[in-house]
Design a protein around this nucleic acid. Structure first.
Length: 419
RNA sequence: GUGGGUGUAGCUCAAUUGGUCAGAGCACUGGGUUGUGGCCCCAGAGGCUGUCGGUUCGAGCCCGAUCACUCACCCCA
């Protein structure tokens, strides 16, 4: 019979890999909380309309990548393709803007996009997402990128670069878009077909094109940075200034344009050259108009998302996996000792000591083999002789030494070997 | 959605021009004399060669379809 496979692009995270996830999640929580971010847990599914209105009707994410369906009441529901929309919705719905001017939130969890899977790209993937509501200060832009860099470093990853750009505000960007379109039209026959198409759908994204010929042509294209309005320029200059003062390393990259409609002004990406085609491990930007557009107050906001799988890929390239092992392993020889070992096992656990045994009661040799494989540091061996003498062997597997200790006080006796 | 590559034991891979080719290593199980792990030695278990169909006297090897994995495009974290 054919066995059932997991859904395409959705992966199991098995016990031997879960250590990586813990490491990333723990470091992320630690850093985010130290910067004042508080965790929220929003539903995995939202009304489809939320994503259409926030991410943009004509983006690829909404047009062809969402897991969308009608529930039994006929309402259109979608699995979230990203977290920002849900967090903004939650922020508005619960009036989180009312009791404090500034609100910092984060969420860690799975996102869903129906794309063709490849390295670093899955249909269920995980993001660490941080959002700061309520201030337009360039300080928060800089702090956020500073925090992102720190987070990546804290997790144990090196060799990534922070790319920063400004998209201007909707007004100055619109002016620029027309100028760029003019440029693209002029040289239409020199660009690749994709770029010609992008000219109409989302002209800024031509800067993301991977075709060398296009990139060469773009060297002479008008740059957004030269067309932003005075306020946007002042904001961007201030952000860069704060980044310098925070000693956060970055590169200004006018080609970081981002694919979601709601971004404006500051945008950024953290990029690695060791990930293949999916080289961005994190990215984000400012989205001042979004809260208002979704029916909330007109508050400024900025946020980013990090791809956990991509982070882990990098981590695996430079760090050793830490495997979980019990501290103690109990061995029982014969029926009575085996039962006593079983009871001791539970007593040790009752004290918060990590202990395991081989319940099968096999030969000493094979129980010892299992003890060794479990990775336990100490093995407690109980045979008929020991039981009669009210004693138990405590073997240090690392040192290869063992000693006989009184059985009745063994739980206390072993307390000192906790760690 | 488009293109390329790949699909043989749990894992990594072998199998001459289609004709004992279904194998190895690791992992797993048991054993190497009375109750002691790692190393070593011995033995064992484990696969209708992704699936379905076709060509052929005969297919893991050829053809088609399908599914999956993978890399890239696209898109993005």
């Amino acid at each position: 019979m054919q066995s059932i496979q997991a859904v395409r692009g959705m992966n199991d995270i098995l016990p031997d890999a879960v250590g990586w996830w813990r490491r990333v999640e723990n470091a992320a929580r630690e850093v985010l909380e130290s910067f004042g971010y508080r965790e929220v847990r929003t539903p995995l599914a939202e009304k489809l309309e939320l994503f259409a209105r926030s991410i943009g009707e004509s983006t690829d994410i909404v047009e062809k990548e969402m897991y969308a369906f009608q529930d039994r009441n006929g309402e259109w529901i979608a699995l979230r393709p990203e977290a920002t929309a849900s967090i903004v919705r939650s922020y508005i719905q619960h009036g989180l803007h009312s009791d404090s001017a500034l609100r910092k939130l984060y969420e860690i969890g799975p996102m869903f996009r129906h794309e063709r899977p490849q390295k670093g790209r899955y249909r269920q993937f995980h993001q660490i997402d941080a959002e700061a509501f309520g201030t337009d200060s360039p300080m928060i832009d800089a702090e956020m990128m500073h925090m992102l860099s720190l987070l990546v470093e804290r997790i144990g990853i090196s060799g990534v670069i922070l790319h920063v750009n400004t998209l201007g505000c909707p007004e100055c960007r619109q002016t620029y878009k027309e100028i760029l379109k003019g440029f693209l039209k002029e040289k239409a026959d020199l660009f690749c077909p994709d770029c010609v198409r992008r000219r109409e759908t989302n002209p800024l994204r031509v800067f993301d094109c991977k075709v060398e010929k296009c990139q060469a042509l773009l060297d002479r294209a008008p740059m957004l940075i030269d067309y932003v309005c005075r306020d946007c320029r002042a904001h961007f200059d201030a952000v860069k200034d704060y980044l310098d003062k925070l000693a956060t390393r970055y590169e200004v990259n006018p080609r970081i344009v981002r694919g979601l409609d709601y971004y404006m002004r500051t945008t950024f990406e953290v990029i690695s050259d060791r990930l293949g085609a999916q080289n961005a491990i994190g990215g984000g930007g400012r989205y001042n108009g979004l809260v208002r557009d979704l029916g909330g107050p007109d508050v400024a906001a900025i946020g980013f998302a990090i791809g956990v799988e991509r982070l882990i890929m990098l981590l695996q390239q430079e760090r050793e996996q830490i495997l979980r092992a019990p501290r103690f392993f109990l061995v029982g020889l014969g029926e009575k000792p085996l039962e006593k070992a079983f009871l001791l096992l539970q007593q040790l656990r009752g004290r918060g000591l990590e202990a395991e045994m081989d319940y099968g009661g096999r030969s000493l040799k094979s129980q010892m083999r299992r003890a060794d494989k479990s990775g336990a540091r100490y093995v407690l061996i109980l045979g008929e002789n020991e039981l009669v003498q009210r004693q138990i062997q405590v073997r240090d597997m690392l040192a290869g030494t063992q000693e006989l200790l009184p059985l009745d006080a063994i739980v206390e006796g072993v307390e000192g070997l906790r760690d």
